[in-house]
Computed example of a mutant assay.
Amino acid sequence: MSTVSTCFIHVIYIASTAESVFEAITRPEIARTYWGHENVSDWQPGSRWQHVRADAARKVELVGEVVESTPPSRLVITWAAASQADDAQAYSRVTFDIVPYDGMVRLTVTHDQLEPGSGMDTGIRQGWPLVLSSLKSLLETGRGMDVFAKPLA
């Protein structure tokens, strides 16, 4: 990555518990129901994690390392396309801050260390709002959304 970087921050309120939100991010069988991918790791600092497509092909699309894991309040991971796993400059960072908030949870996702205008920067700006809306829907109604849906134009 160049010396210039950008960041994306998304805040969403979910009628759930911090424990349920943390589990939904870290448990593969839950993540697949709202994300269409499984997040696979033992979630210990220093461990690798993989973002695996939850279909028959089981393609690993993203990889990274667990930087910090403090259940149920905080998770920090590095993040890169699997095809760029060997390029240290390709990694960005994602922080999930999960805070109980008057009978609900405030989830703040900060995706930083992004190269401005890169494919990853563009992709996550479209992807995070949809994924987090689907997470909210799953935890509040029991049903996630189609994160592979395309805009009607």
Rank of each mutant, 00 (worst) to 15 (best):
S118P: 15
T108S: 13
G123N: 10
L130E: 07
P100H: 03
V109Y: 02
H111K: 01
P129N: 13
P116L: 11
T95N: 08
P100N: 04
S92K: 05
P129D: 10
R93T: 06
D97R: 14
G123P: 06
D112K: 05
T122Y: 15
G103F: 06
S92L: 01
A90S: 15
D121Y: 05
I124R: 00
G103Y: 05
Q126N: 12
A90I: 03
G123S: 11
Y101P: 05
Q113C: 03
A90E: 07
Q89W: 07
Q89T: 09
P129Q: 09
A82L: 00
I98K: 07
R106E: 09
V109M: 14
G127H: 07
V105I: 12
W128C: 08
Y91K: 04
S118D: 11
G119M: 09
E115K: 10
T110H: 14
D112L: 02
P129L: 12
V94E: 01
I124S: 00
G117C: 12
Q89P: 01
A88D: 12
A81P: 01
D87S: 11
T122K: 08
R106T: 11
D112V: 03
D87I: 11
W128S: 08
T110V: 13
M120F: 15
A88F: 10
G127E: 06
I124E: 04
D97A: 13
Y91W: 00
G117V: 12
V99R: 12
A82E: 14
Q113W: 04
V105G: 11
S83M: 06
Y101Q: 14
R125T: 05
D87V: 06
Y101T: 11
G119S: 14
W128T: 01
I124G: 05
V99Q: 15
V109F: 06
R106G: 12
S118G: 14
G117D: 09
P116V: 08
Y101R: 13
H111A: 02
A81K: 02
P116H: 10
T95Y: 01
A85H: 05
Q89C: 07
P129F: 12
T110F: 06
V109C: 11
R93Q: 14
E115N: 14
G117M: 14
T95I: 10
